[in-house]
Design a protein around this nucleic acid. Structure first.
Lengths: 196, 196
DNA sequence: CGGCGTTTTGAGAGAGCTCAACATCGGTGG
DNA sequence: CCACCGATGTTGAGCTCTCTCAAAACGCCG
């Protein structure tokens, strides 16, 4: 997989890091010095419960920012570990904060990026609340698809999509097969089209 | 229910509106003139699919901002309808934008509020991805609970919580009963405590 | 007191998970 | 070039958990 490029607005603030699978990017309690942009791989953010058990807060996929709160806290509230070999862009929170304060245009852009993420995640919450595999797929196509006839292009594997939809891969495959058979969707390679 | 007060930072920009159940607050395509803070009630944001069917993007509950993207778009991309009698604070997006641009301290606060929401929603996504009613409740207590011994205080009814957890109220009641019986949790009134 | 919404428990049905087997595809090394 | 390997894709069968429908107890407010 080719790495997602760092957004142009922060590119000059970013320094590149490669993280082997299993290694941590930061640990809870450490100085919150950076905001991160995940260019490739997958990262889990988790905390530990009273009995030391892992509690997953978020799983970041390629193309996402994470630990944005480093701007406002001085210590990380969770631990970040690479679930695969990953590449991240580390953005100094001091530099980022300084630019936000000094460049209102940039502040607006950063705000817009956060808003967009928020909208996306909220839609995902709604999707996960829907009962029925087919209905979830339909919601995905309607909210994330583009074009007159809603078209969604698979970014990764269907297995990954299943995870995003809160389904097992088997359930997703069956739903897609059924929807294709009854003419709800069409598929050509990585593209899924909502027909009715 | 007593209305949630408007956050102090934007109070002077806000004008109050009461929305009867079933009425819309804004419609898709209309000029995106305001960001909203929901003080009381519940609001659904939805779009319409090709066949005119409703697609829910988000359901906002009391205490939440919604339509933050009005800052960056000139038209609403969805329609907002009150699911109950609601009270909202409408914040002019022009005024808000102006303050963000002119007051860096304020910009930081607004950013922090967005970050906090993002973190919360992401945790909720993770929660909804968990299989098993009891495990979901446990995740809620561990992520949203406070204190040494994780304690969560019900804000509304248990029914509402069930909705938030993506469960039927029956499933939630049964899970709570079972967890109480086997000593996983303790309950006193609106408080739920994770014991082990 | 009467009515409404919440809480609680029961029983049955169905959707999706689990386990399993096999096909397919892309890459790797002999 | 082909054999092999791991990961993805696909389908089957059984089982479990949650949803659905139902009913009753409870608490609150007019």
């Amino acid at each position: 997989m080719t790495p997602v490029p760092v957004p142009a607005t922060v590119r000059d603030l970013a320094s590149h890091r490669s993280i082997p699978k299993g290694e941590s990017i930061f640990r809870v309690g450490a100085h919150a010095g950076h905001v991160f942009f995940l260019q490739r791989g997958r990262v889990v953010l988790h905390r530990f419960g009273p009995a030391g058990e892992e509690v997953v807060i978020h799983i970041a996929d390629a193309g996402e920012f994470f630990a944005e709160a480093s701007l406002h806290a001085d210590r990380y509230h969770c631990t970040a570990v690479a679930l695969r070999d990953s590449e991240v862009a580390a953005i100094s929170s001091i530099d980022l904060g300084a630019r936000i304060q000094s460049d209102p245009r940039f502040a607006m852009q950063w705000l817009e990026s956060l808003s967009a993420q928020l909208r996306k995640v909220r839609a995902r919450v709604e999707r996960l609340s829907i009962r029925g595999t087919a209905e979830r797929v339909r919601h995905l196509l309607l909210t994330e698809g583009s074009g007159k006839v809603p078209t969604y292009t698979l970014q990764g594997t269907a297995r990954e999509l299943a995870g995003q939809l809160g389904l097992t891969h088997e359930a997703l495959y069956r739903a897609l097969a059924a929807m294709q058979k009854d003419g709800t969707i069409g598929r050509t390679g990585k593209e899924i089209v909502l027909l009715r």
